[in-house]
Every structure is written in C-alpha cells, then in structure tokens.
Nucleic acid binder design. Sequence first.
DNA 1: AATTGCCTACTGGTCTGACCAGTTATTTTT
DNA 2: AAAAATAACTGGTCAGACCAGTAGGCAATT
Lengths: 252, 252
Amino acid sequence: MAIAQDISYRLERLILDGGLAPGQKMPSERQLATRLGVSRAIIREALHELQGRGVIETKHGKGSFVARIVPGGEEDGDDSPLLQMFNGHARTLYDLLEIREQLEGQAAYLAAKRATTLDLHRITKAYASLEQTDPLTNARPDHNFHQAIVEASHNPVLVHVLNGLKNLMLLTVQASVANLNPREEMRNKIARQHKRIYQAVMAKKPEAAKRIATAHVRFVSDAMRDIEQQGVTIIRVPVNAPTAKTVVSQNA
Amino acid sequence: MAIAQDISYRLERLILDGGLAPGQKMPSERQLATRLGVSRAIIREALHELQGRGVIETKHGKGSFVARIVPGGEEDGDDSPLLQMFNGHARTLYDLLEIREQLEGQAAYLAAKRATTLDLHRITKAYASLEQTDPLTNARPDHNFHQAIVEASHNPVLVHVLNGLKNLMLLTVQASVANLNPREEMRNKIARQHKRIYQAVMAKKPEAAKRIATAHVRFVSDAMRDIEQQGVTIIRVPVNAPTAKTVVSQNA
DNA sequence: AATTGCCTACTGGTCTGACCAGTTATTTTT
DNA sequence: AAAAATAACTGGTCAGACCAGTAGGCAATT
C-alpha cells in the first residue's frame, strides 16, 4: 500500500482510538513528518485524504484539527460534501425546489414516454416500498421512487445532473418528509400525488406525468413555505455521510 | 481558498457535471499540473482529497479513475458500468438540449421576474455584443447572453447547475452555431428568437420569456436533428480548454 | 502603565526538480 | 514468431526552498 494512505490510516486510528478528541489540535506537519519518518509531502497528502473524508479541518497558520461531529456549532465555516456555499440557508432549499420542479417534471415526462417494461417494474417496486414504509423513519423510499422515475427517462445527462444534486436533494426530501409528514392531511396529499405520478407514468401519459410531477414539487415547496412562515422551525435531517469503509476492499 | 482545495473542487465538478463517467481514466498528474497551471504536488493533494471522499481510485503505474458507483463488483476488467455513452455521442447532445430546454426556460422566467437594473444592464450589454459579433467566428457571445440571463435568475443552484454543464453547453452552442449559422434563414430565426427573449426579459414578462426561451432551445434541437438526418455531419467544435488563465494571476 | 507596533518563530501553502517503482507498448534479439 | 530488453509512460516519494497567515514577545511610543 502507498505510504501516504498508510499514514492517513494510522492518523485516523490515532484519532479514533482515543488519542485525539474532536476539536483538538494535531501535531504540525513538520513534526509528523519527522516522527513518522516520512517527507512532509506525504504527510500533506495523508492529511488531505483525511480532510476529504471529513475527519480533520486545516487552518492556515494555525494547524490541523480533528473535526467536530456537528459542523453547526460556531461561526466555523464548514464545507458540506461539495457545495458548501449552500449551507442550509433556507433560500437554497427553495432554489433547489425551483429546479427540481422543472427537472422532475421533465423526468416524469420522459419516463412516461420512454420507460421500458424493466423501468416500469423498477418504478412499481419503488412505489410499493414507498407505501409500506413509514416516511417518518425513512426518507429513502421517497428518494428511491423519484430516482427510479428519473432513471426511466433514459437521459443520462438528466440522471447525472439530478444525481449530482443527490446530496442536496436528499436533504430537501428528508426535510420535507420530516416537516410535512407529521401533518395528516399533508401526508395524504403527498401520497395521493405520488400515486397519480405513478399512474401517469405507468399509463404512459407524458403530459399528465409532467404536470403532476411539477405540481407535486411545487406543492411541497409551497407547503414548506407556509410552515416556515408559521414560525415552525424547519427540521433539517443531516445526510449521513457516505464515507470510507467501501474504500478498504479495493486492494484485495 | 487553498489552491489544492480549489483544484479538487474543480476536478470534482469536472467529473460530476461533465465529461468523466465512472470507471473512466483521468488525465495524468503531470498533464493536470500543466493544464491547470499548478505544481504536481498540488494535484496530488487534490487527488488525495477526492480519494478520501471516494470520488476516485488511483492505481500505481496506471492512473487515477473515477470511482465506480458500485464498489462490490471487483474483478479487474476495465469495462464500463452503464453511463459510458457520455463520450460525445450524438445522444448526449440531445439529452443536453432536453435539459437546457427546461433550465433555460426557467432561467428566463426567473430572470424576467427578478432581474435588477444591474442585471438588465448586463443582459443588454451581452445582447449588444451578440448582434455585433459574427457568430461563425465566435460562439462566446451566444453563451454570454444565455449566461447573463441565467445569472439574473438569482438562483444560485440554477447558476451552479448550468455552470457545471458549461463545458458541455459550450460544446452544444458551438456545435449549433457552427452548423446552423451557415444557413441564412436559420441565422435569422435564431437572431429573432434571441431578440424576443431579450425583449421579454426586459419587459419583465416571465411567462413569455419562459415560453420563448424553451421554444428557442427546442428549435435549435429540432433544427440540428433535421440537419443531421440530411446526412450532414455535425461539426463538433472542440471546447477550448477552460484552463489556467484564471489561475495565472495568483502568483503575481 | 497602557498602548502601539514590529519582529520573530511558529503554522500551513506552494513550487521545483529529482529519483524510485509499477505498467505498457515497442523494439530488439533470439 | 516468440522471447527478451528497452523506452516511455504512469503514480509514489523525497529534499529543500520560499511564500503566507498567526501569535506571542519585546521594545518604542504615547
């Protein structure tokens, strides 16, 4: 294994196994380099790896610090997966929904038009588990349902764009689910909308599918605006980090 | 922001928003260093960051590769998962246009609704240089005009998505310009459409702007389909690398 | 005495150019 | 033609230099 990766592994263990607590300062790069007997370049590469994994934060002139679990805490500008400027500011949520409105609509349209039997089968499956699952405990089915439709559009670019926004989308979906579902009528309305989307796609009615899907996103957006204006704080369920653990196996 | 992080961000965008599909090979470190105008050390740090984030995998002597979505299917073959069709095959062009149809429409809608006087000024300026320039020699004005409108939408997510597709968009725009403009009537029609979009935005007529902008993209798309079916080879002007030049100034 | 301000010794950030180590295609040799 | 040597890639590592923020101390000024 490459030394840099070995180092990053050792440093991570050092942190995880109790040596260093969150927020604590790590030794300087030059110190680490000396102590671990490698060049500073290697140390820096290893640190960047941990940085990418969200384990540490580095500040120019100060040093590297073990990342705090919850970035929220302070003024401490933190980076989300990739699009940090979108730090959960409410605006972003609606900006995103504004786009989802278009894209999900188009996806539904294309799905209704182009879906193969396999696609339809996938969508049906996703829809089924959507009905069974309690939306409060698990937002995934919701996302999966939408995802299945998007994939049925057979437009790789569309799949790709939406996939790129997946993290943010998951956030909004979870947020909406967490906030909207407690309200009985809301939950029913959304369920009905899902059903109608599902039916339109299955029936191969592009225009209808588009209209309904667009309206669905719009509805969610509007509903959240209402809620928010009533002074109810929007619950933002953090997306669980899709970190490491998959990386380990690759050198087997 | 640190350059290494900027680079890692740009590389990730390149992967996510554009050219590189899972399993695909990335340019060599030395190439990247040259093209992006930074040292190889920086490139390596950036790559390690992406590695930590699970975006890429690196193999000694071979290169770095965009990580496959499914880590399970080990094996060694360098086959492609699913989304390989990205490679500039004609499909992508129309897939892209399908999305631009929606996004440009929405952008125009929002621009007409939210544009400030400053925005309007910018758009006017872009429109002016659009009329003056010969579209055959320079596709930039076309892109700038659309860009100005997008930015006037005041939706950062929208800006980001479209910006991420910039490379591909530039490609399509250039392709369309190169193919469509030689035909006199085409050029006129497109010019007229641009004018109508411009007017709608300036007049703050969201619905109209949206309708026209959508139709515009649709028109271009259809026109290219026609041409292509007539056996005329689509000219794909290679995107001139959007490299360096912004990076240059930092060592001043 | 209190403040200002500079100097210094940290810290991370970047660059350069070198060399080692796998991989692969080409060319030479058998 | 098959095998072996080679050349030209790729990433991995190193050394030492210099730039750029940060923080603490110490001196000059107020």
